[in-house]
Every structure is written in structure tokens, then in C-alpha cells.
């Protein structure tokens, strides 16, 4: 049961990677990476239920904070630069 749900979540992260491949600009790609970061938290939560290794919740919390810092850095970069056509 949990196995099937985990496979579905991993399949969805492949959908994110398709957007990374397709994305016309850099911003599109980074948005897809950001979404992938949130999906990883869900994967961590399901892995706790599957394997019973309780430290994975700390991994999930640290992942939330790190992906937040990455998003903020990208936003600052986008604000200060212009798209050259």
C-alpha cells in the first residue's frame, strides 16, 4: 500500500523534471526545482511510515529550510537582473 503511494510520488517528481527539461527560461526551471523540493518532504514522510526510521523527520525539516533559502536567493537574483531577448 505505502509502496504504491511512494512510487506515485516518485513518478510525480519525474513530471517536475519534464518541466525542467521543457522550461523555456531559467525561471521556469527553478520553479520546477522548488516544487520538487516540497515533494521530497512528502517522500520523507512516507518513508518514515514505510521503514520506521524516525530521524527522517529531521531531514524533512532541514529540507524545508534549505529549499526556502534557495528560493529566496533565486528571487533576489531575478529581481536584480533583466531578461535579455
Amino acid at each position: 500500500m505505502i509502496d504504491i503511494l511512494l512510487y506515485i510520488l516518485m513518478g510525480m517528481s519525474f513530471l517536475c523534471f519534464i518541466r525542467v527539461l521543457l522550461g523555456p527560461t531559467m525561471a521556469d526551471r527553478m520553479v520546477a526545482i522548488d516544487i520538487f523540493g516540497i515533494l521530497v518532504v512528502g517522500i520523507c514522510a512516507l518513508l518514515i511510515l514505510k521503514t520506521g526510521r524516525l530521524f527522517l523527520i529531521d531531514v524533512a525539516i532541514a529540507w524545508i529550510m534549505l529549499s526556502f533559502i534557495g528560493t529566496i536567493a533565486l528571487g533576489k537574483y531575478l529581481t536584480r537582473n533583466k531578461l535579455d531577448e
Binding site: 529566496i72 528571487g75 531578461l83
Partner: peptide, 15 residues
């Protein structure tokens, strides 16, 4: 906060 700063950055970036 991430979504807000990404959408503002994308607008200023000129998308």
C-alpha cells in the same frame, strides 16, 4: 513567502 518572492522576481525579470 517563496511563491511571493518568485512571482515578484519574475515580473521584474521581464517575463
Amino acid at each position: 513567502v517563496g511563491a511571493h518572492i518568485l512571482i515578484r522576481g519574475a515580473y521584474k525579470y521581464g517575463l
